[in-house]
């Protein structure tokens, strides 16, 4: 019996939902709002550079970006599919959304790994 490959996508979607739910609020609050407004002072710039250049951080970031992209791809796919009743374009939508997530992952990985 052929089983659909849906579990792979679902794990990426779910992982992305969980990772973004746990990490994005604090990242946005600190990096996008508190630091620019000067509410808080960042760690010394050398420390931050050491942090983002550390291979584990880079690896973690790459995985994080991949998960977020697939989370988006999955939700956006079904929003188009059901929300706009485009089920007849199922294949096109799937190729576009997951394809963009894959391209985004490769580009993101290339950029992030180039740090340091």
């Amino acid at each position: 019996m052929k089983r659909s490959r849906e579990p792979i996508i679902w794990v990426l979607f779910g992982g992305g939902g969980m990772a973004s739910a746990l990490f994005l609020p604090v990242l946005i609050l600190v990096l996008f709002i508190a630091l620019p407004l000067g509410w808080v002072q960042s760690a010394p710039i050398d420390d931050l550079q050491w942090l983002v250049r550390h291979p584990l951080t880079r690896l973690g970031l790459i995985v994080f970006v991949m998960l977020c992209l697939f989370h988006w791809a999955h939700r956006f796919r079904y929003t188009l599919y059901d929300g706009l009743q485009l089920s007849h374009l199922n294949e096109v939508i799937a190729v576009l959304t997951y394809g963009m997530a894959m391209v985004g992952t490769v580009v993101g990985a290339y950029l992030i790994w180039g740090v340091g």
């Binding site: 019996m1 089983r3 659909s4 849906e6 679902w10 079904y78 059901d82």
Partner: peptide, 15 residues
């Protein structure tokens, strides 16, 4: 049951 339900029209159709 899994053979039927693990298809797209089974559980994976649910959003």
């Amino acid at each position: 049951r899994m053979d039927v339900l693990s298809q797209h029209d089974g559980i994976w159709g649910c959003t």
